[in-house]
Design a protein around this nucleic acid. Structure first.
Lengths: 244, 244
DNA sequence: TAGTTTTTTGTCACTCTGACAGAAATGGGA
DNA sequence: TCCCATTTCTGTCAGAGTGACAAAAAACTA
């Protein structure tokens, strides 16, 4: 430690991406089929090593997304999710991975890129339930990403980003229900979003419908942080929050 | 990229520590005076490079804390704060740093360790105001850590960890006031913490005081997450939350 | 025209909060 | 001893927000 010419150990650095979107009212995550060892053939998050020593982390994230799933996410706001770096998480040796989270409206169907044999959307509950196994510690990373998304829906207007540019209140409600995984009362939800100033703004009262009363149309409002927040009903578990 | 024998670039990995505590009812952060270049003599967060290639990140964090400030933080729960890795943040070249946050009751006065010329507590407002300049991007890291602490006080019983094992409600209020940086109404605060089930529990109704009515004594309750949360008054700024 | 479906407007009781009044329990002078 | 300053604790009151639910409004269908 007090060596005169001690050199800091350098660690191979990777990025992993949790890309969430909504498809048929269910939350999906983008997964690729690994085309190389280790875990060849297994499902995994898109991601990979830094391209070169000076590459920015977010730049690497965008590049990997393009390479592995042909998704140009240049416009996607990537949010840092965390660092996953326990020794032993990668059979190749020490690798530290920085996970990023993106949440987006309907994205195009991805196509396989260079390092990945396949790329497609998978429902998150299949991943979280363990029904679909992921390589490395990627299941945990997905779980962390989903939890982050749930919290963000409470305090930010992020939900509007899941919808198209124009949407109905019911569609917005479906976003919350899909991400939170619980049903909400349409009438209370309607009241809440309506009186949350700047959350949504009505757009030329056009209409819409297949059956039932036509719904008003809205677009995202100017407010990014919601105060007071949307309240997520308390977990049913009675011992929730207890420790010791 | 499709090179057959391409090797993943390895990056020197460091950890930085934001240790927050309360002293004389003000929030303080642990800083060291750098004993080596770059930024020799400047104030900085304790931290340093990974000791060896297989060292765990949190292990490195604990080790650095011991080395630089002689604080045995084995028991401190360290929480990951984020990754700071833009190229150019370190004049020595590419370095990626993982920041950790710890929040603790009165810790002993630190003493300088091997790599640091000095180690001491500094009020966070001196850092955030720019009055006290920090090396690297450490001011930003401190700001992120303080903001995280503020949010944690809302949703968790963390505030009790700042107090001693036994405390009065007023002392608990002072924690909130110091971290949030705003005054609170003692009567409403009293009511709120009292009826938040499991937050604090009365301990043998002993007493205390210098002047005024003696206060009841409490200890931390079993509840770790607060629901409903403690509400932090909305920021005064009127355009808060506006975007675009 | 009656029934179905979905959206929208209300209602009611309850909880939580901010603002504030004032009583209770102590120590310190005069 | 008696009043006062100080701090803790107990209330009160009005307003905002929420969960649960009723019912009207606006379509389409049979």
């Amino acid at each position: 430690m007090t060596d005169d010419r001690w050199v800091a150990p350098a660690v191979p650095l990777a990025v992993d991406l949790v890309i969430l979107t909504l498809r048929r009212s269910r939350l999906h995550v983008l997964l690729v089929e690994r085309g190389v060892e280790p875990y060849r053939g297994a499902a995994a998050l898109p991601g990979g090593f830094l391209g070169h020593l000076e590459e920015d982390l977010t730049a690497a994230a965008h590049r990997e997304l393009l390479e592995e799933a042909n998704l140009d996410a240049e416009t996607l706001p990537l949010e840092q999710l965390g660092v996953y770096g326990e020794p032993g998480r990668d059979p190749r040796g020490r690798v530290v991975s920085v996970a990023y989270l993106a949440i987006a409206p309907r994205l195009p169907e991805p196509t396989a890129g260079t390092d990945a044999a396949d790329a497609r959307w998978q429902p998150v509950d299949r991943v979280l339930s363990g029904d679909l196994e992921l390589a490395f510690d990627h299941r945990r990373i997905v779980a962390d990403g989903v939890e982050r998304a749930r919290v963000k829906l409470e305090h930010s207007a992020l939900a509007t980003a899941f919808c198209g540019p124009i949407f109905t209140i019911t569609e917005l409600q479906e976003v919350y229900e899909a991400v939170w995984g619980i049903p909400l009362d349409p009438r209370n939800f309607y009241r809440k979003v309506q009186k949350t100033d700047g959350f949504i703004v009505p757009v030329g009262s056009a209409r819409k419908a297949a059956t039932g009363r036509p719904a008003r149309l809205f677009k995202a409002g100017p407010r990014a942080v919601l105060y007071p927040p949307m309240v997520r009903p308390a977990e049913s578990s009675s011992t929730e929050g207890a420790v010791k």
